[in-house]
Design a protein around this nucleic acid. Structure first.
Lengths: 247, 247
DNA sequence: CGCCAACTTGATGGCTGTCAAGTCAGGTGG
DNA sequence: CCACCTGACTTGACAGCCATCAAGTTGGCG
């Protein structure tokens, strides 16, 4: 709501969503574009949208027309089965794209829910397609992003199919750590935005098992955990846990 | 090896790979293209390749330059972990695309192995990108195919994360049945191209568990199974098994 | 005919789910 | 400011599903 009286005092360029001065441009869709190309993206990515904690960005079944780039905040996506079971399919943070699953049937196939107050840039998909017919770099990068999502999903399948509970959690923590690092945050210390139940759902475990694994890691000096606050003390140790297959 | 003397006697148009007279064109990449557009695809999809049973189409780590459309046959893809564990990430049949995972890092991330003697059409990726910059329908369809792969992966994650052994196998059989049907084969009777171990790997189970579940389904009159030959007797029964969550 | 891979079936055990009780932290209202 | 309440988390006891180990069977192929 731009009913703020201070609004007029701020230069318009700052308010307007613009990839060209977004500090995520090296992580997000405009990666690798020239200045001129990026300005053409600016015209397309015109609407920024706030999503409050626990609100849906979109729901399964809704018509698909845009993908979303996360400007700030944290999301989860989940899918539902008819019988009520559900599963978290991913956690997304700044610079990542949401909604790629909706392209196939022109309808979203999962729910996207903010885990903290967030901001996203809506990218109308038909306009993205038409622009990527003109800008090769954009087209290619978009294909890479979709492909990366497929590779990521294969990693999760591997995790769910072959790893034991503690291995899964170790992989999860290392993955978060690595993604926080890529965004300039500490690789060793962060707050979890999600509950134990959501972690469990993502990892195919029950919340009690997640809790026990956290406690076990703490006993073993691998991490320090207090509720949602995590400090990673021994990254090599976690990696060893993940790769040493000792059933 | 075109050292066959009969080669000269067959009209070239029949030998040449051509989407425009491929009976899979309504399932595969050219879906929805006009005749003229399809002929432009023909020029690109020039190389057909035979892959014998148990041979690799590509291996994880190899440089990526083409995606492959399966013209006939049956494949599996699998990923390997450093410690030797591996998992089957999918089974692919005629009309489906292989190699989409390779786009992200310009390197294949999994192995694609033929489960029976097969034929694929190699589609050079840079040419696909350039053609899809010109043909909107092709571009859009390709995006849909990639997105569909993401949705499929979410389904597998759901299966691995929330379902019990028999539910997983029921889902697997119903999925195969549905895909065979889409290709004009019987929906109720088919040969499995993969071993129990490969099924188990895909479903996150051990081969003994797969075998037991098959036997159980047979006892319950849901299917008739003899080695790799499957006859589905009670589709609604399998669906009930899959959706009635009774832990 | 014999070999071997694939499969089936049984017995046992362990990881993780389930149920239950209790603790902690944050927010609200008196 | 503090008591209370609630959702999130932790921890313990027990049970069940599936993995593991083992032995035997089947079917294809040289």
């Amino acid at each position: 709501m731009p009913s703020n009286t201070a609004f007029q005092e701020i230069p318009l360029a700052v308010i307007k969503t613009a990839c060209s001065n977004c500090n995520l441009r090296e992580l997000c869709l405009p990666m690798g574009l020239s200045d001129e190309e990026m300005h053409r993206l600016d015209d397309m990515v015109s609407t920024r949208k706030r999503v409050k904690r626990s609100e849906h960005l979109y729901r399964a079944g809704q018509e698909f027309d845009s993908i979303y780039a996360i400007r700030s905040g944290f999301f989860k996506t989940d899918v539902l089965l008819e019988d009520g079971r559900d599963q978290v399919t991913g956690f997304q943070m700044a610079g990542e794209l949401l909604g790629l699953d909706g392209i196939s049937a022109e309808r979203h196939t999962c729910n996207a829910i903010a885990l903290e107050d967030s901001e996203v840039c809506a990218i109308p998909f038909t306009r993205l397609e038409s622009l990527s017919r003109e800008i090769f770099t954009l087209q290619h990068h978009f294909h890479k992003v979709m492909s990366r999502e497929i590779v990521r999903d294969h990693g999760v399948m591997m995790l769910l199919g072959t790893m034991r509970a503690e291995e899964r959690l170790a992989a999860f923590l290392l993955n978060l750590s690595q993604r926080f690092t890529a965004r300039g945050f500490s690789h060793a210390e962060f707050y979890l935005r999600m509950t134990r139940e959501e972690i469990g759902s993502y990892l195919g475990l029950k919340l009690e098992t997640v809790s026990r694994a956290f406690s076990r890691f703490q006993e073993d000096g691998l991490i320090a955990v207090q509720q949602k606050h995590i400090r990673i003390l021994d990254i090599p140790g976690l990696k060893r846990l993940m790769t040493h297959h000792t059933p």
